[in-house]
Design a protein around this nucleic acid. Structure first.
Lengths: 194, 194
DNA sequence: GTGTTTAGCGACCGATCGTTCGGACTCTAT
DNA sequence: ATAGAGTCCGAACGATCGGTCGCTAAACAC
């Protein structure tokens, strides 16, 4: 049974467009800087037309985050799952991570990295979603590190450090070589310390 | 000549109180989340009474940042300048940095680390001030690294990575051992790679 | 055809935003 | 005592915030 009448395709497309624009704005001005009025103006829509798809601003923020998380998984996590567990998968995860940070498709860099800082000490569903994403990422790296014989906690900390570092080096300092430096650092962590 | 009439001490004290509260709010909700109305309510003042000390909201933000930067310099940079140039000073700078991140005196963690992400892709005086602060910090580390014979750019990247990592580990993941891990990582970067 | 469902609009809501202004008040210098 | 400087308040400004409501128009089922 098709529950959607009036051009379900159009509505989904509109929703996708709103989410894409919201993510783009959020990458520059933060998730709290995403405003219904500004979004409506940019998309030549009415405020109610925008908000109708999400109910509340928080719903819109969550939709934008979910979209970016799916993109992150598709570009970073899934390609690496074809590699053997342990060091091969770890290096693949890190390499894809750093490449993603250098080309997120959003004008303000990585939204997930920014959201981690923006919502780290707040409460609510947005914080919970962001915290869960990063805990998942940590669990993923930790599980692979256990196959290496390395100091799991120490290596996990050092690998987790490289992502934010790449983001800051690119966004704040304009260092386009950051991904290469991070890849080299990751190899030092994973190999030299064995 | 004392330019201030009516209780210069009182006015300065009021200004200090406002800045302290603004920094505390900003550490949790971001510098853009600092609101004149909320500030006035928290301090039992009028909005105009608050804003009168700074002229504009941006002036207030800059005053809060300047305060925190001065605190950072006093707690992190200056104590390390007594150490010999090169490795001794570098390890001291990093150790004080990581300890500072674990105890900033603000409820939401390190405001400078958060501001770097919040304003990295924006324009204006706040961005400029934050970018300058971090460029100064990079220049400081770089100057010391030149005395070590290490790969300056690579080591600089790896050391710069550890600060944001400590902040995220503490604020988002509640890892109170993060400063110790960062100190260990810094020693690996500075010694093993020689 | 008729009826139902729904995307999106336009008008509006109370609250809050940053900012301005005039005045009340307090202190200091003369 | 008087004048000036400066702190702070209270009221108000236009703009914008997130959100609600009733409506129209279009697509569907029948």
């Amino acid at each position: 049974m098709s529950l959607m009448r009036r051009s379900a395709v159009d509505a989904q497309h509109t929703r996708d467009t709103i989410i894409a624009k919201a993510a783009a704005i959020a990458s520059v001005d933060g998730l709290e800087g995403v405003t219904i009025g500004r979004l409506a103006a940019d998309l030549a829509m009415s405020k109610s037309g925008v908000l109708g798809h999400f109910g509340t601003k928080e719903g819109l923020q969550l939709a934008a985050i979910d979209r970016v998380i799916a993109d992150f998984r598709a570009k970073v996590v899934e390609p690496a799952l074809t590699r053997d567990r342990g060091l091969p998968r770890l290096t693949a995860l890190c390499d894809h991570w750093f490449d993603y940070l250098a080309d997120t498709g959003l004008p303000g860099g990585c939204l997930l990295t920014a959201a981690a800082v923006e919502f780290d000490t707040r409460t609510g569903e947005v914080h919970d979603t962001v915290a869960e994403l990063w805990n998942d990422w940590r669990r993923l790296l930790r599980a692979e590190l256990k196959h290496t014989g390395l100091d799991v906690d120490q290596c996990l900390f050092e690998l987790m450090a490289l992502g934010p570092a790449v983001n800051q080096a690119i966004q704040l300092h304009g260092d386009r070589k950051a991904p290469e430096r991070a890849k080299r650092a990751a190899r030092t962590v994973l190999l030299v310390k064995a």
